[in-house]
Lab assay of single mutants.
Amino acid sequence: QIGDLVNIDLDLEIVQSLQHGHGGWTDGMFETLTTTGTVCGIDEDHDIVVQYPSGNRWTFNPAVL
């Protein structure tokens, strides 16, 4: 839910696979593998929007978090 702290604890290849159809994966997202983020929103597809200390916001398949 919004305000929750979240981490990704999966291998890169699994995360990339799960992201298909959920915003995809870009090289800029590598920070998300090692950094705790804060849930800042849930979109119309029930994907999770997470903000990181860098100021970046990324959209994830809920199965990734």
Rank of each mutant, 00 (worst) to 15 (best):
Q1F: 15
Q1H: 15
Q1D: 15
Q1G: 13
I2S: 12
I2A: 05
I2L: 11
I2M: 14
G3M: 02
G3N: 04
D4T: 07
D4L: 10
D4A: 13
L5E: 15
L5R: 14
V6L: 02
V6M: 08
V6G: 08
V6Q: 05
N7P: 03
N7K: 09
I8V: 07
I8H: 05
I8Q: 01
I8G: 03
I8E: 02
D9Y: 07
D9K: 09
L10S: 11
L10G: 12
L10V: 06
D11A: 12
L12E: 07
L12R: 08
L12K: 09
E13N: 12
E13I: 08
E13L: 07
E13K: 13
I14C: 12
I14P: 01
V15R: 00
V15D: 06
Q16S: 06
Q16K: 13
Q16I: 15
Q16L: 09
Q16T: 09
Q16V: 09
S17T: 12
S17V: 13
S17A: 11
L18I: 04
Q19G: 03
Q19L: 05
H20M: 14
H20L: 11
G21R: 06
H22M: 05
H22G: 04
H22D: 00
H22A: 00
H22T: 00
G24S: 05
G24A: 06
G24Q: 05
W25M: 03
W25E: 08
W25K: 06
W25I: 06
T26A: 14
T26G: 06
D27V: 04
D27N: 10
D27S: 09
G28K: 13
M29A: 03
M29L: 00
M29W: 00
F30S: 15
E31A: 00
E31Y: 06
E31V: 00
T32C: 15
T32I: 07
T32P: 05
T32D: 10
L33C: 06
L33V: 05
T34F: 13
T35Y: 12
T35P: 00
T36G: 03
T36Q: 14
T36P: 11
G37W: 01
T38M: 14
T38N: 02
T38W: 11
T38G: 03
V39P: 10
V39T: 01
V39W: 00
C40L: 08
C40A: 10
C40E: 09
G41A: 15
G41Y: 12
G41S: 13
G41W: 12
I42K: 12
I42N: 12
D43T: 10
D43S: 15
D43P: 06
E44Q: 13
E44V: 13
E44S: 15
D45G: 12
D45A: 10
H46S: 12
H46N: 15
H46Y: 09
I48K: 05
I48P: 01
I48D: 01
V49E: 09
V49D: 07
V49I: 13
V49K: 05
V49R: 04
V50H: 13
V50S: 02
V50Q: 08
V50A: 03
V50E: 09
Q51M: 07
Q51V: 10
Q51R: 12
Q51E: 15
Y52I: 00
Y52P: 08
Y52Q: 00
Y52T: 00
Y52V: 01
P53Q: 05
G55T: 05
G55R: 05
N56G: 03
N56T: 07
N56I: 05
N56D: 06
R57M: 10
W58S: 06
W58K: 06
W58H: 10
W58F: 08
W58E: 01
T59V: 13
T59Q: 08
T59H: 11
F60A: 02
F60L: 14
N61P: 00
N61Y: 09
N61D: 02
N61K: 02
P62V: 02
A63L: 13
A63W: 10
V64L: 11
V64R: 06
V64W: 00
V64P: 00
